[in-house]
Amino acid sequence: MAERFERHKQPWKPEELAKLRTLAAKGMALKAIAKALTRSEESVKQRAKEDGLKIARLR
């Protein structure tokens, strides 16, 4: 069973956005970023797209 996130539709805090940018710049994978931010992969992917960030894909 997939992990459940209890933070449904919570607004992004400035600290979370800064961490997202830092982790994306380091080339971390989507799954790792989502876990570090305790957000769903879909939420992280959507926010990165809104901010124009590239997230590394696992190869």
Rank of each mutant, 00 (worst) to 15 (best):
M1I: 07
M1E: 14
A2N: 04
A2Q: 11
E3D: 15
E3C: 10
R4L: 15
R4T: 13
R4K: 09
F5P: 00
F5E: 03
E6N: 08
E6V: 05
E6A: 07
R7K: 08
R7Q: 11
R7G: 01
R7Y: 06
R7N: 14
H8K: 09
H8E: 08
H8D: 08
H8M: 03
K9M: 11
K9R: 12
K9A: 15
Q10I: 05
Q10P: 00
Q10M: 08
W12I: 00
W12N: 00
W12G: 00
K13H: 06
K13F: 10
P14R: 01
E15W: 05
E15G: 00
E15A: 14
E15V: 08
E15Y: 09
E15F: 07
E15T: 04
E15P: 00
E15R: 04
E16G: 03
E16F: 01
E16V: 02
E16Q: 09
A18H: 04
A18R: 14
A18G: 06
K19H: 07
L20W: 02
L20P: 02
L20V: 02
R21L: 02
R21W: 00
R21Y: 03
R21K: 15
T22M: 07
T22C: 02
T22V: 08
A24S: 14
A24E: 12
A24P: 04
A24C: 09
A25D: 11
A25Y: 03
K26H: 06
K26I: 00
G27P: 03
G27Q: 05
G27N: 06
M28F: 13
M28L: 14
A29H: 15
A29P: 04
L30G: 08
L30R: 14
L30V: 08
K31G: 03
K31R: 11
K31Q: 12
A32Y: 04
A32E: 15
A32K: 11
I33R: 04
I33L: 13
A34M: 06
A34F: 01
A34C: 07
K35I: 13
L37A: 03
L37F: 07
L37P: 06
L37Q: 08
T38C: 09
T38F: 12
T38S: 09
R39Q: 10
R39G: 06
R39L: 11
R39P: 09
S40P: 05
S40F: 01
S40L: 06
E42M: 08
E42I: 07
E42S: 09
S43W: 00
S43Y: 00
V44D: 11
V44N: 11
V44E: 13
K45Q: 12
K45I: 03
K45A: 15
K45F: 05
Q46D: 12
Q46V: 12
R47L: 11
R47F: 04
A48D: 08
A48C: 07
K49D: 11
E50Y: 04
D51M: 09
G52M: 07
G52L: 05
G52V: 05
L53V: 12
K54Y: 13
K54W: 10
I55Y: 04
I55H: 07
I55M: 10
I55L: 10
A56I: 04
A56E: 15
R57M: 15
L58C: 01
L58P: 01
L58D: 08
R59G: 15
R59A: 14
